[in-house]
Amino acid sequence: MAEKIIEVDHVTMKFNLMEEKVDTLKEYIVKLIKGKLMYNEFVALKDVSFSIEKGEAFGLVGFNGAGKSTMLKVLAGVLKPTEGQVIVRGNIAPLIEVGAGFDPELTAMENVFLNGAILGHNKAFLQEHFNAIIDFAELRDFINVPVKNFSSGMYSRLGFAIATEVRPDILIVDEVLSVGDYQFQQKCEQRITQMMEAGTTIILVSHDIHTVEKICNTVAWLEHGKLRDIGEAGRICNEYQKH
């Protein structure tokens, strides 16, 4: 049996969803006095356990609010689970909403270094891979343009190029394949396949069930924060569509 690269062990994630968001001290005190500072507990994930094997392409499906994004954040280490634990054996490159790490005022070149550093890489590594990133993103003519002037397609091309150039052990892909033109989408899918062949584990979240079915081997279906089903991609996708 292959090595388990991610183990999610009885993870529960609770939020204190306050009735309204309390932003100011005054509001806070007023509410405190009125006794209105109720902690409306919201359970986003409830006792979810699964594991992902090395080199696998793992899909997460579910309706809006099923807890997919929360799950990804827990996997990326951004959220700490309330209960349970997540063991990750390797480095993760999140590709959640491409371009989150971009500074609009900086040029494409500066952003490559900023984004790369955010993903935990050093200067030498980024200098070595700079040309490959720019070529993949097809932005050679725009390296000195501030990214605020970029189109959304250019944005996501650059983001995708950086996150995948670094050859992480695990790549999290959240709905990003739907951006960019058809040609670039093909290029992205090609690259993901290449990475999988090279042993990268992919975690894909998408509403486009066909993409999930095409790319993934294993799919987990989340419903209301609980793991409804997990198994071979074709079967789960079929059931999910019927649902």
Partner: peptide, 9 residues
Amino acid sequence: SALIKKVYM
């Protein structure tokens, strides 16, 4: 915040 919500560092 945009970054903190997305990537661990």
